[in-house]
Amino acid sequence: MGRVAQAPAEDVITPPARTRARRGEGERLRDEILVAAARVLAESGSEQAMSIRAVADAAGVTPPSIYMHFADKTDLVYAVCERNFTELDAYVESQLAGVDDPSERLALRGRAYIGFGLDHAEQYRVLFMTTEFPEHYTPEKMSEMAGYQHLVDNVRECMHAGTIATDDPEVVSVGLWALVHGITSLLVSRPSFPWPPVDTLVDHVLATYASGLSRQ
């Protein structure tokens, strides 16, 4: 029985003071700001507690430097989350390396998703558990993200292999995403609830859902 994959915790390192970025270094400065903002967001415990001043101090820049790259704090927070979503996809895919069976890959995908969400709880909460979302994050853009497309492709592979009954792969994929998101969001938002062991819970829910899909 598989175990929930956990992402390695990142070391908290105080960055050295930096000099003003030279011409042509705008992208590097933006990346440094995102790294600092991700660290501050995780340390502060909520997006409300995170401030532009704190991010500027962590990045070794002035607040106006941040506004040169991000319209406001909301824009910065969601840029951090988009980066984290990319890291989530990279992490999940890394857990599938060397696994050829599509059904096993799908189960591992769910466990890795939950494990990563628990290890990055605040970023996960901001990305998936808030009603405030910038206008440029359209449903179309969300559905085009690599992580979602990888899930749909995996579901199609299972259908072609006959381990999942043929159906609309988009519907099945959204159902699976809703399933693992539900587990993750409950564990993140209600950590004090007397949950059964996470591995036991995840194994049971995923196995039950997979059994239902195979009998359709």
Score class of each variant (00 low, 15 high):
46 S>K: 04
110 G>C: 12
210 A>M: 12
91 Y>Q: 07
41 L>R: 02
11 D>S: 12
173 S>H: 06
86 T>I: 11
180 V>H: 03
131 T>H: 14
56 A>H: 01
162 G>E: 02
152 V>N: 08
163 T>M: 06
136 H>D: 13
203 D>S: 12
61 V>F: 08
150 H>D: 08
56 A>W: 05
179 L>T: 14
156 R>G: 00
48 Q>R: 13
29 L>Y: 06
182 G>A: 07
201 L>R: 06
196 P>F: 04
8 P>M: 09
201 L>W: 11
71 A>M: 13
131 T>R: 15
8 P>T: 10
61 V>H: 00
134 P>G: 10
110 G>L: 06
198 V>N: 01
9 A>H: 13
28 R>W: 07
130 T>A: 09
175 G>M: 12
143 S>D: 09
112 A>N: 02
150 H>M: 01
100 D>L: 11
6 Q>S: 13
13 I>V: 15
123 Q>K: 08
214 S>I: 02
127 L>D: 00
176 L>K: 02
151 L>N: 08
46 S>H: 05
8 P>R: 14
211 S>V: 01
9 A>S: 14
45 G>V: 04
106 L>Y: 01
49 A>Q: 12
194 P>M: 05
86 T>R: 13
89 D>S: 14
213 L>A: 06
157 E>F: 00
57 D>V: 12
116 F>W: 15
102 P>R: 01
